[in-house]
Write a protein that binds this DNA or RNA. Structure first.
Lengths: 234, 234
DNA sequence: ACCATGCTTCGGTTACCATCGAAGTATGCC
DNA sequence: GGCATACTTCGATGGTAACCGAAGCATGGT
C-alpha cells in the first residue's frame, strides 16, 4: 500500500462537486473540451481551467490540444474503474431509492467509460454465460474456449488484449439494474467492435441505439456469430 | 452512475492526510480504537474524534462500542477495494521508485485488509495456477473443479461465499511486488482458514509469520492438502 | 490586419475546514 | 465516592480553496 499523502491528494481532486460533475461527464467515454466541461460543471471558464489543472495534477485526466481547443479525457482505464467503485460506494451508502439514470433510454443502453452498461449490457452478460461463452459465476468470470472462438469471430484480438495489464473479464455492477454487466478489456473490446461494425451508434448524449444486427448479437450472441460465419463460408 | 455530490462527499472524506493515515491503519484488517487512530494519524483526540465522525458520515468506517472504548473498522469490503484501487492509482501516477513497504518482513507477508499480500501471497497465486486449482489468466481468474475440491478440503464453505455479492477470485495488484495476489471472497476465506488452522499468525503490527504447515501450504498447495486428506483417511 | 473564439493567468473575496485546549460525559477501577 | 481513562463537544484561530471578472495569450476565420 503506497503513501497516504498521494492518496489524499488524488481523493482531493475528486472531492469537489464541480470536479465530480466534470469527471462524470468524461465517464461517458468521449473527449470533451474545456468549454464543454465548464458548462457541465456549471462554472465559468476560468474556474473550469483551474479545476482541470487540479485533475491533471492528480493524474485523473489527460489533455490533447487541437488548434485552440483542449480536449480532456479520463487518463487511464484504472482511473475509470476507481471512479466507478467510488460512485457505486457513494450510491450504496445512502438511501435505498432507485439509483442510476432516470431516463429510460439511458437505463436501456449507455456507455460506462468504455463498455456497455444498462439493461442490454446486463442481458448480454446473461446470454454469454448461458451460451457458455463465459464461464464462472457472475462474480468470477473467464472466457471459455468456445468464448475465445466467439470473440475472435467477432473480430477481437485476444492475444493483444492479454498483453495489457488489465483484467480481461471484469464484472461491473450496473447500478441502474443492480446486476453486473461486462467491463474489463473484453467489455471495452466488444463495444469497440460493435461501434466499428455499426451495430451500435451513440444517440445524443450518453444513450446508445442498436442496429438490427446489434440487437440480435445481444439476444443470441452465439447463433448470431455462427450465422455470420456460415454466410462467409458459403 | 449515481449522483456526483455523493461521490465528492465520499472522496472528501478521504482527501485529508490525517484521515488517509487512519484509513491505511484500518486497512490492516484489525479494529482500532479512537485513541490508537489518533496516534496513527498524528493528531489530538479531539481532532481524531472529528475526523472519525467524517469517515462515518461518508460510510467508510463503522464503530462498535465496548465499555468506554470505541472500535473502528473499515465498513465493508467494497470500501477496502475502492481504497486499494485509489492507493494503487495514487502510487502509479507518480515516480517509478520502488513502492510498497520497505520493511522486508512486510514485503514477505502482510495483510491487505482481509487477504494475504506480499511475496508469499504472489507465490501462492502462482502455485494455485500452476496446479490448475485456479484457471484463467492472472487478470481473469476462476476456480477449477479441482480447485473447488481443494478449497473444500481446506475447510472453505464455497456455497456460502457464493451467496455473497462479492467477487470470488479477484486479482489485487501487489504494489510491493508489482504482480497480483488473490483477493476477493476466496482470498479472504483462505486467510481466515489459515488463521483458524494456526498456519499463520500476526506478528507485531502488520507482518505475518507462517507455521511450517503454513509455509508448505504456500509452496505446495495441492500436495499439501492431498497429504492431509490421506492422513485423515488412514 | 482585424476580429472572434478558446482558454489561461491574475488578483480579490468569501466560505469552509483542520487544528487545539478546555470543559464535559460515560465507563472502569479501587 | 473518588479518581483515572476514553472520548465528545464547544469555541477560537489560522490557513486553504472555490468562485469570478478582467486582462492576456494563442489560434482560427475573413
Amino acid at each position: 500500500m503506497p503513501d497516504t499523502p498521494d492518496m489524499a491528494f488524488v481523493a482531493g481532486a475528486i472531492a469537489d462537486p464541480t470536479r465530480g460533475r466534470m469527471l462524470m461527464s468524461l465517464m461517458r467515454g468521449q473527449a470533451l473540451t474545456a468549454t464543454e466541461l465548464a458548462l457541465d460543471g456549471g462554472v465559468t471558464a476560468s474556474t473550469a481551467s483551474s479545476h482541470l489543472g487540479r485533475l491533471m495534477d492528480a493524474g485523473l485526466v489527460s489533455v490533447t490540444r487541437q488548434g485552440r481547443h483542449r480536449y480532456f479525457r479520463i487518463a487511464r482505464p484504472e482511473v475509470a474503474e476507481m471512479l466507478e467503485g467510488m460512485a457505486n460506494l457513494a450510491s450504496s451508502s445512502g438511501s435505498r431509492i432507485t439509483t442510476g439514470p432516470r431516463d429510460p433510454a439511458l437505463r436501456h443502453a449507455r456507455v460506462c467509460y468504455d463498455h456497455l452498461a444498462g439493461e442490454t449490457a446486463v442481458r448480454l452478460l446473461v446470454r454469454l454465460r448461458e451460451h457458455e461463452l463465459l464461464i464462472g459465476d457472475e462474480d468470477s468470470l473467464a472466457l471459455s474456449p468456445r468464448g475465445e472462438t466467439w470473440a475472435a469471430a467477432l473480430g477481437i484480438d485476444l492475444p493483444a488484449l492479454r498483453t495489457r495489464r488489465r483484467i480481461l473479464c471484469r464484472p461491473c455492477l450496473d447500478w441502474s439494474e443492480r446486476r453486473s454487466h461486462l467491463a474489463g478489456s473484453l467489455g471495452a473490446a466488444i463495444l469497440e467492435r460493435m461501434v466499428a461494425l455499426r451495430y451500435v451508434r451513440r444517440t445524443s448524449g450518453r444513450a446508445i441505439a442498436f442496429s438490427e444486427n446489434g440487437a440480435r448479437l445481444i439476444d443470441r450472441p452465439d447463433t448470431f456469430i455462427r450465422d455470420k460465419l456460415v454466410c462467409r463460408a458459403v
